[in-house]
Write a protein that binds this DNA or RNA. Sequence first.
RNA 1: GCCGGGAUGGCGAAAUGGUAGACGCAGGGGACUUAAAAUCCUCAGCCCCUAGACAGGGCGUACGGGUUCAAGUCCCGUUCCCGGCACCA
Length: 848
Amino acid sequence: MRCFGTAMTSAPIAPAAEPQEGRNRYDFAAVEAKWQQYWLTHKTFRAELTPGKPKAYVLDMFPYPSGAGLHVGHPEGYTATDIYCRFLRARGVNVLHPMGWDAFGLPAEQYAIQTGTHPAVTTQQNIATFRRQIQALGFSYDWDREVDTTDPHYYRWTQWIFLQLFEKGLASQAEIAVNWCPALGTVLANEEVSDGKSERGGHPVIRKPMRQWMLKITAYGERLLEGVERLDWPEGIKAMQRNWIGKSEGAEVDFDIENDLGKLRVFTTRPDTLFGATYMVVAPEHPLLGQLVTPEQKDAVEAYVLAAARQSERDRTDAGRPKTGVATGRSAINPVNGQRIPIWVADYVLGGYGTGTIMAVPAHDERDFAFAKTFGLPIVQVVSADGKPFESAQSAAFTEEGVAIHSSKFDGLTTAAFKKAITEQLVAEGRGEARVNYKLRDWVFSRQRYWGEPIPIYYPMDGAQAASSPEAVEAAVRSASARIRYDQPIAVLASELPLLLPETTDFQPTGDAEPPLSRCLGWRYFQKDGKWFARETNTMPQWAGSCWYYLRYLDPRNDQAPASKEAIDYWLPVDLYVGGAEHAVLHLLYARFWHKVLFDCGVVPTDEPFQRLVNQGMILGEDNEKMSKSRGNVVNPDVMLKEFGADAFRLYEMFMGPLEQVKPWATAGLHGTKRFLQRVWTLFDKPISEAAPEGDTLRLLHKLIQKVTDDTQNLRMNTAIAAMMGALNELVRLETLPRQVAETFAVLLAPYAAHLAEELWQKLGHGPSVSRVPWPSYDPALCIDDFLELPVQVNGKMRGKLMVARGTPAAELEALALADAGVLRHTEGKTIRKVIVVPDRMVSLVVS
RNA sequence: GCCGGGAUGGCGAAAUGGUAGACGCAGGGGACUUAAAAUCCUCAGCCCCUAGACAGGGCGUACGGGUUCAAGUCCCGUUCCCGGCACCA
């Protein structure tokens, strides 16, 4: 390979550092600053839509710019993608590699509440810090494509996508129970509640029905599930997505309530156990509960329902908790055998799943078994492994599949056959039907918060005509003489987007459930055609902006569409998406959902956004614990950069181990990568010879190209770096450095230690930039050695080594092996039973 | 409990079924230096034999079995660790 600088010689750039007297120290600080400046001003890594040129869209999960700044976990994935992108560019691929900010969210708003600083101000400060820190690492992002989810030019399109969902009937309002904390004056996420108290402050939290915007992600459940199969994602993440969607197939069955009180419908995945149903359970929130409870049981049931309502969803669903429940006093009729079975109410049945009612089969369901034991309810076995009845009373539920018993004419059927037969019979009798259920719930999409995208919806008002001002409208609403018609939502016209967040300094929660935007009266109430309207005052959750940012990068300044059709058609899908596993479910599921909706709208041509996903493993503290402020084991990248430089830092993060693996930080390790860079720098002080490399050096070079190419392609940066270190250890022994070796080494190093490689390239007499130099190729014939050291085993133990020429025939190898001194020691006086010779590999002898 | 991923020197790790520990960190010895840092050279899995070195031998990839001429790697079982989910009928 012969590489000469191709372009940009006219660019003003400082001369390469000259070797000084004595020891030539590599001044990483100066060199890194110089090249970062160069890349930025020359837009070296700008991505341009080039029809016909192969493309790669390599995406990092964009960060939430927190006040704490970057931590060492961020640059791990960013470094991996940066190396990969620089490598691909050198291989002639048109690479799109952008960065941006997921900047709406709670911390900025909390900070505003405490200090009065507007979230927009905090956010911009934090973004500036993050940008500075990320740029100091020398990543090859196309900064012209930077996006910020809080920028109205961005969230205009977030709102536009919401309107698409609204028009398709996928966004609607519902009264649902949320975790309301009166003391904090806010709704809390399930994760923020434990034991019925708020995580922060320990205030009581109640379940309170409130009007919420919901997105019907359940309508896409099957497609989201099925799409997982075609994705090149880690198996674990795919499993989590499947599990979250939670598809289960079964049947719904009607049970008549005695005294002609109607029917209760249950969902079951085991209709084959119908004969074993000995009682039923309805969820405490079941709508028919009030009608079916008997007068004697009314008080007890009401008390139970009240207690259940006080629990959070999370506590309700905490497995392993003792079973509780109350009999309703009423019974139902088992449709297959006419038996009267009691109906209970218990909180282990959830109102939101299936029909909110179950048939309990204690013999074959662990939960029902525990409940039946607690309350002394009958247990009837209807499935056995071998078709024979159980000998003794069960000590646990038998939940496996098996053969039916005690099920009249169905006895002897396997579980699968029974399910099919009984479902057909129930359908024929009009008592049930086959049914698929999903655990996936619709997405609660509204937040009672200020710092989020306003939902672009408004409502007509009754009784507000006379009002002369927003304040008067508000007064009328408060006195109940005017009413907001939430049942008649109107979409803001797409042409009127963005619907801007109003300026306010009033972020304090007030104790009622009204979002802060409700108090921006001049924004909330407006007149149109002489009538008053009220805007939606909930905002979108933080997930909204990150659901589609990968699209905006394609065409970030477009004010006609989220991105142009040409850009979308050219760049999509994302070829490689790298980020932490903490987003395994929510972000990745929500983004896939939106993408599929946009696919249905004809906006995107693919039905999945992220073809390939890689999770970088978490970096732990030096103490092997998760990094956290409270543990005091957080490593600050700024400090590391100052002492070791960006190249050494990046190299270390990659050298620590495989990208996907969890691994502990060790600052001492940075000495190694810094030393390596210094030694490379010193290597280039050797006299450069123009003669072509030959012999071992040539072989070394080609092996190195092969190894680095292979490993980089497969994101095995750790072993690529090890190979470069190994090669360096050989090259330092040379008297002079052949130009071809030096140039190739610089090009191979460039994706990994980009600043140093640029400097070396310049030092070799080339103009910038090494990033424009094509990746070297290798000759496979030069990657294999002429002479090999072959092991000889005797009875499986290594007893000798043969130095032989490649291709030495088996017979000759056998003769050599048998004559080897080390081997003879173990074969003397013994019989050779077997000789296995694998040419160019090894010789194995079996003796006795 | 279920799902996913792990377990290799003092530490991070490497190894198409074919010489376990490449590459690095930390460490020992040496050179340079007034000294230190930096740099360079060099040693190094554990154990036995040995005055020491060479040579040699034994044991070693969480544990127990198995397949194979040959197992860190493949198969069966077990333990422990990490991540996620967890009363979803």
